[in-house]
């Protein structure tokens, strides 16, 4: 078995253990607060976060609300509703990821080709990421409405905006990573620039690209959710979070459930990139001589 194969069950175990530990801490903290009346034991210093059921609902309540119907008297449970919403957001994020990655790689290639553009573009690429998404999202949505873009497409574009950055930056580093010797070797074959790109630079860039893809995948979910919230697009987790936040006082556990759903979606897309990485790098992960 490969090292990866051996590691996988262990990793799942570790993740579950951390989850259990976290739930235990959560409940332990609540219990402590309830016992002392909201202060650190033996002192009168107040706890940083209140432990009442509105601020911190019980773990079992959060889990319990998952199987409650979303609408009073309806058939659909909250869990099913959240999965549907997550799927909707996932599609937006996936488009954003794809567009952002292609754009990011394109930028990396352009910057590789021209040191002038490399120097000219890099500061702007950096600055682009300092613009708060909250400010940018409504602008993109508004622009989208004046053109052919639907709101959902505008949301994907917002996700792409976060995605392209790590791909461009790491991609460029990866494309530049082959040693001079390898580049000279390709030169000695009189290989055209494109052949050097495909047969040397891209394969060599994979170890740089996959960490970027992992980050970009998670960012694309963040971008999609924030985009939904700013545009009011219905159907995805962003809207759900907005709604549940509005009704927090009557059902705090629902917002927590929606946040957990977003986190799981993030984990899911992260997992997809990990699988993609293992497929793409499978040769290099071999260790034992066959």
């Amino acid at each position: 078995m490969t090292e990866v194969g051996r590691r996988a069950p262990f990793q799942i175990l570790a993740v579950v253990a951390v989850l259990v530990a976290f739930a235990t801490l959560w409940e332990g903290y609540k219990a402590m607060g309830d016992a002392t009346g909201g202060t650190w034991p033996g002192t009168d210093r107040e706890l940083p976060v209140a432990t009442d059921d509105l601020t911190l609902p019980h773990v079992h309540e959060i889990l319990g609300t998952m199987v409650d119907p979303v609408q009073r008297g309806g058939d659909e449970t909250l869990a099913v509703f959240l999965v549907k919403s997550a799927w909707f957001t996932f599609k937006e994020a996936a488009w954003g990821f794809a567009i952002g990655s292609v754009f990011g790689l394109g930028l990396a290639i352009v910057m590789l080709r021209s040191s002038f553009l490399d120097r000219g573009l890099l500061p702007w690429i950096n600055i682009s990421q300092t613009i708060p998404l909250i400010a940018l999202a409504p602008i993109v949505v508004t622009w989208g409405r004046t053109t052919f873009l639907s709101d959902v497409q505008a949301v994907s574009l917002i996700a792409a905006y976060l995605t392209f950055f790590p791909v461009a930056v790491n991609g460029l580093a990866g494309l530049k990573s082959p040693p001079d010797e390898s580049l000279e070797l390709m030169d000695s074959y009189a290989a055209p620039w494109s052949a050097t790109l495909w047969k040397l630079r891209f394969p060599a860039a994979r170890p740089y690209l996959f960490p970027a893809f992992k980050l970009a995948a998670t960012l694309s979910v963040v971008g999609a959710i924030v985009g939904e919230i700013s545009s009011g697009v219905r159907g995805g987790l962003g809207r759900v979070i907005l709604d549940f936040a509005g009704r927090y006082s009557t059902g705090p556990e629902r917002l927590y459930a929606a946040v957990i759903a977003s986190a799981l979606l993030g984990l899911f897309v992260f997992g997809l990139t990990v699988i993609a990485e293992r497929i793409a790098l499978r040769g290099q992960l071999l260790e034992d001589v066959g």
Binding site: S182, S188, P203
Partner: peptide
């Protein structure tokens, strides 16, 4: 001669591409 691939070259480090068999 380079364009015609008249020579082969080898360096101190083997320079094999580690993603290729």
């Amino acid at each position: 001669a380079r364009l015609d691939q008249d020579y082969g070259m080898a360096f101190q480090r083997s320079g094999l591409f580690d993603w290729r068999k």
